[in-house]
């Protein structure tokens, strides 16, 4: 193609570029073999060793991290369990306290009711006793007074005790039969049932 420039340079200057130059083939072969030797003997083994070490290190690190994570998870689980326990404990204590409080209140109420009943009963009993005493003393006094009055009026001695008491009894029975309500009302004001209801309804 360019004969003017290359005519004096011989065959290789004008040769087709697809014809290999033997010197270059030899040089290329030598260079390539040297490079192959370096790559196989030095570079690849060193790099592979390092890569294997790195992989081992990374794997070890990952295992460590996994272990740490597992530990953390376990600790968290434990903490949660403890928290749940504490919560349950607190709830139980609260429940207990509430139950105890309720029990105490019930007990107190019961005791108060019992006390009230006792007081009421005692008062009733006292009133009854007083009434009884009053009735007794009244009866004695009234009997004595009546007999005395009667004996004075009649002039006859009524001191005979048997007769005297019989007379008094009869008198009192008559008295009670004539107005039992009045007598009882005046005699036992602390009796709760009948008088209070009658009073309540009358009002």
């Amino acid at each position: 193609m360019t004969p003017v420039l290359t005519a004096e340079e011989g065959f290789w200057a004008t040769a087709y570029p697809v014809i290999p130059h033997p010197g270059e083939i030899i040089a290329g072969t030598i260079c390539f073999i040297v490079l192959l030797v370096v790559a196989y003997k030095v570079a690849v083994p060193r790099l592979e060793t390092m890569l294997a070490q790195r992989q081992a290190a990374i794997q070890g690190g990952m295992e460590k991290a996994e272990k740490a994570q597992a530990e953390a998870a376990a600790a968290l689980e434990e903490y949660r369990a403890q928290l749940a326990d504490a919560r349950a404990e607190a709830a139980r204590i609260r429940e207990e306290a509430r139950a105890e409080g309720a029990k105490i209140i019930a007990e107190m109420r019961e005791r108060a009711a019992a006390e009230a009943e006792r007081i009421t009963e005692a008062a009733g009993r006292q009133v009854e006793a007083e009434r009884q005493a009053a009735v007794t003393s009244l009866r004695t006094e009234l009997g004595g007074l009546a007999t005395e009055l009667a004996s004075r009026i009649v002039g006859e001695s009524l001191t005979d005790s048997a007769r005297q008491s019989r007379i008094v009894e009869r008198f009192l029975t008559e008295l009670e039969q004539s107005s039992p309500e009045e007598v009882r009302a005046t005699a036992a004001p602390a009796e709760p049932a009948a008088p209070s209801t009658s009073r309540g309804t009358s009002r």
């Binding site: 193609m1 340079e9 290789w12 200057a13 004008t14 040769a15 010197g23 290329g28």
Partner: peptide, 20 residues
């Protein structure tokens, strides 16, 4: 293609060329 022929030492089949 002649531009790619750049011998440094000698000429011919076993010349030391620039690409070598």
């Amino acid at each position: 293609p002649a531009d790619f022929w750049q011998p440094l030492i000698g000429d011919g089949g076993f010349a030391i060329t620039r690409p070598m």
